[in-house]
Design a protein around this nucleic acid. Sequence first.
DNA 1: TCTCCCATGTCTACGGTGTAAACTACGCCG
DNA 2: CGGCGTAGTTTACACCGTAGACATGGGAGA
Lengths: 223, 223
Amino acid sequence: MVTEPNTTDERRTPLTRDRVLQAAVDLADRGGNEALSMRKLGQELGVDAMALYRHVRGKDDLLDGLVEVIVGQIERPTSGGDWRANLREQAMAARNVMLSHPWARRVLEERGTGGPACLAYVESVLATLHDGGFSIELAHHALHVLSSRIFGFTQDLFEEPGPADPPPDAAAMLRALAGYPRVVELAMAASHEGVLGPCDDDVEFAFGLDLTLDGLERVRAGA
Amino acid sequence: MVTEPNTTDERRTPLTRDRVLQAAVDLADRGGNEALSMRKLGQELGVDAMALYRHVRGKDDLLDGLVEVIVGQIERPTSGGDWRANLREQAMAARNVMLSHPWARRVLEERGTGGPACLAYVESVLATLHDGGFSIELAHHALHVLSSRIFGFTQDLFEEPGPADPPPDAAAMLRALAGYPRVVELAMAASHEGVLGPCDDDVEFAFGLDLTLDGLERVRAGA
DNA sequence: TCTCCCATGTCTACGGTGTAAACTACGCCG
DNA sequence: CGGCGTAGTTTACACCGTAGACATGGGAGA
């Protein structure tokens, strides 16, 4: 082809690692986790899939890069309050990021938290704990109990019947749930009238976070 | 071929959903999560991959079946104690199962907890909470905070440097960690001399579990 | 200005995945 | 014996990540 200028000639500006990562974020935001394939990403950028390998070592490296981008988006709290308020604000900030990038949770779990952005993030959390009077051992425990919440999500194995679930066939659903009276009781009571979000329940997140923070404070003060 | 009897002629006994699931568990126990492919599983059973589709609707159905098997392995606690001891014992039993099937965590997260075994399991947990004096709302919260622990694992984003990590290149590792003083401090302090397990740290699991149970008891008593 | 090189992107290909559809082989039952 | 259902096979398709050879174009050096 002879440099035929295709719509806005987006491909002229050369690819960059940052451009690749940004496109990957956009793609995942739109198409979810399974849309993140090398081929689709290449297509997204008007480029052959293999071209990406000039700027990214492979899929794993791409995902690592995404972790960096996402974790980098988490705002550090205005470090005014005590450790508790500080950490709470931190977790909430992280949660906001995770809510706007629902796919990121899986990527984080899959690739781990060993990258620079994550290390820096953990470093800041540890500093907060230290300044709050936590011993190293207790900070270690705290990091483990908080780990998922500090990154903005909980390991919610239960998918509430949300407003999207009943439509299919409420009758069959109820029939399938016969034999689990307490489960249906709970499903009724917890039907989450207030449609808070697609991923998680703000109330639940805050509840668990506060429960954990309270517990940590108690242990800290007791030790 | 004319019924040539290959070693022990294992293929003669006809396939069954249970046989398929059991083989899948064995395969995953040996080869981890990525060994769970239809083709490999078929090979494991001395059978073509497509043969599995007679006994399993597809990969998703296979995974759902695995969830049933695994969750079914969790022993119910001897319901003698109070709710707290009861739930603790329950979580520990679940953890034992998860430790012997490390791949199960991912499968559970991927496929959810909507199957009969999981529903029955949750039902029993809810019964325990109810008998312990929890209101429906509080039981709901409790289920969310406990969800991952009740199934035997926590969402541990941090991979401790365990005894397998240093070998590669301790010097390069320490160099990479320069700039994160508190992280290395913690890594030193928490080097987990006691090599407890490959997946998680018993101490951390128990710590988080007790912290959560204490918090719940406090809320229950206060409300 | 000519030339060469290298960076960037493309093409082809390989082995892997899940699975749809057609086909084969066997046992059972009327 | 005829037929039928059941279990397993074969083939094929679309997708995945990626190794390796190739095309191309622009900038540096002669």
